[in-house]
């Protein structure tokens, strides 16, 4: 603190006037004023010792600086402006933050909605089986790369004779047969686990009667005894095969509609276990 009692008294007066102010701020203001007054004293004190500093000089310095009440009031006024400005900035910042958050929520919502809709589209697009074609995303005639690009590496791959078999049954409920030379899809097979159906609603799990009804019924039916033959070439146009074992019990059913490029496998109870799409003939 200042060594001059008049100055100390003066500073105390200002401090009193600033009594409602934050103590750190008040301290900083008093220091600031004290520094200024020290500075002024330095210029008048230099040539004379402390004891010889005239009372008039001190009085003049304090008069030049202003009445404690006036100075305190000016600090309050300027700091109020500063506070208002700070509050405005704070409010403005709060508004910006709210706006940004609102935009963020909208963007996130749009993204989620987009993904949801895309997902729905994708699901719808990829879940509809088109007879003689496949799915909208992958169809008969597409090449190996398309399969790999669409589904990634298969769970299993078997190269046999003139055929490549790619298995995605566990993940997708689908497997593919491709021509080894052309590497083009010749058959797409939909298995349990595939979440989709034909446009008429037939899906894995549909019953034989329902499939027959929706397909216009079998034009021909034949029975194959596995102990005698594995020959399924008894016709292609809406032909129903009943496959029996050596004891005559039904093992499965196969219904083929070659003109539409589709066939169905059913278990012994008549429930569809596989739908195969191929090029119509």
């Amino acid at each position: 603190m200042n060594k001059h009692p008049e100055i100390r008294h003066y500073l105390r007066e200002i401090e009193k006037e600033l009594s409602d102010m934050d103590s750190d701020l008040k301290k900083s203001i008093i220091n600031e004023i004290n520094e200024h007054l020290e500075e002024k004293f330095h210029f008048i004190e230099s040539p004379v010792p402390d004891s010889e500093v005239k009372a008039e000089d001190v009085k003049k310095i304090l008069e030049d600086f202003g009445e404690p009440k006036e100075i305190a009031s000016e600090y309050k006024r300027q700091l109020l402006d500063e506070k208002e400005s700070f509050d405005k900035r704070k409010k403005s910042s709060a508004k910006v933050i709210i706006l940004v958050l609102a935009l963020l929520v909208i963007v996130v919502f749009v993204i989620i909605a987009g993904l949801f809709l895309l997902g729905e589209d994708k699901e719808e697009a990829d879940s509809t089986i088109y007879e003689g074609l496949g799915l909208s995303s992958i169809q008969i005639g597409d090449d190996l790369n398309k399969v790999l690009d669409t589904y990634g590496n298969p769970e299993d791959r078997v190269d046999s004779g003139n055929t490549i078999w790619l298995d995605y049954r566990e993940k997708e409920g689908i497997d593919f047969l491709l021509n080894k030379q052309s590497e083009e899809i010749t058959e797409i097979r939909f298995n349990p686990g595939f979440k989709g159906s034909l446009k008429n609603g037939i899906t894995i799990g549909s019953m034989l009667d329902e499939v027959q009804n929706l397909s216009g019924g079998a034009l021909n039916s034949t029975r194959i005894n596995l102990s005698e033959s594995h020959d399924y070439t008894h016709g292609w146009d809406r032909v129903l095969y009943e496959i029996v074992d050596g004891t005559g019990d039904t093992v499965s059913y196969k219904f083929i509609d070659a003109k539409k490029g589709i066939l169905f496998w059913f278990d012994s109870s008549g429930m569809s276990t596989q739908i195969v799409v191929f090029t119509p003939f």
Binding site: H36, G66, E67, E70, E74, Q78, L79
Partner: peptide, 8 residues
């Protein structure tokens, strides 16, 4: 008054 400069 000089003191009014510091608040500014």
């Amino acid at each position: 008054h000089e003191g009014t400069v510091y608040p500014i």
